[in-house]
């Protein structure tokens, strides 16, 4: 029997329906499970197992293979700083240090309040706008240590319910990999990528 509310179950069914084999839906459902609990709980993995026909051990095996399925409690804001080669060349390590300092959270950890989780990550595909930072996977390019500090302060003070990539780029970003051209209205609400079909965006979708 499912632990999920009826609308989430509907969403799960829809996601499964997108694939020829229910097992293929395991990743989208893991995101859905993270949306439910804020991170990937054992119960969440068990639930995904039930929907896809995997055993819980198989779901855990898949989930832990990937970096974005987090099996430990996370903060409201997951701040990811790229320290791969291109960002490192342009000061990614300093940005990371600034974020750790401003949040008081060393990389790989979450504060007691569960406001911030901080991590350094490998290449985010924003090398032309290095160094790159993401908040809940929403991108900010061309950041500096000062801007990164300001970003963290802003998150701490304002506690925005949702974060928006264009908005944050405007406030705390610099040079972009390319012209973003048009602003986008979709927002992220938690430490998982915001993607409408997965029901991981804000609003009444799930």
């Amino acid at each position: 029997m499912s632990l999920w509310p009826a609308d989430v179950q509907e969403r799960a069914k829809e996601l499964i329906g997108r694939y020829p084999d229910p097992k293929s839906a395991v990743m989208p459902l893991l995101y859905l499970a993270m949306r439910q609990d804020g991170y990937l709980t054992e119960a969440g993995m068990g639930e995904v197992a039930g929907w896809t026909g995997h055993t819980p051990a198989q779901v855990q095996s898949v989930a832990t293979f990937y970096g974005m399925f987090k099996t430990e409690p996370l903060g409201q804001y997951l701040v990811s700083v790229c320290t791969s080669i291109s960002c490192m060349l342009l000061g990614g390590d300093d940005v990371l240090e600034a974020v750790e300092e401003a949040t008081g959270v060393p990389h790989g950890e979450t504060d007691a309040e569960r406001l911030f989780s901080v991590e350094h990550v490998e290449c985010l595909g924003a090398c032309g706008g290095a160094p790159a930072v993401q908040v809940n996977y929403e991108l900010i390019e061309g950041s500096t240590p000062d801007q990164a500090r300001a970003l963290c302060r802003w998150l701490q003070d304002e506690r925005p319910e949702v974060v928006n990539t264009d908005d944050m780029q405007e406030r705390f970003g610099g040079r972009r990999s390319f012209d973003w051209a048009i602003a986008e209205s979709e927002n992220a609400v938690g430490p998982y990528p915001a993607f409408g079909p997965y029901g991981t965006t804000p609003g009444g979708e799930v």
Binding site: G125, Y137, L139, E184, P193, G196
Partner: peptide, 11 residues
């Protein structure tokens, strides 16, 4: 997965 915005545009 770290490309939610491109994914949204594509969707």
């Amino acid at each position: 997965g770290e490309y939610p915005k491109p994914a949204r545009r594509v969707q």
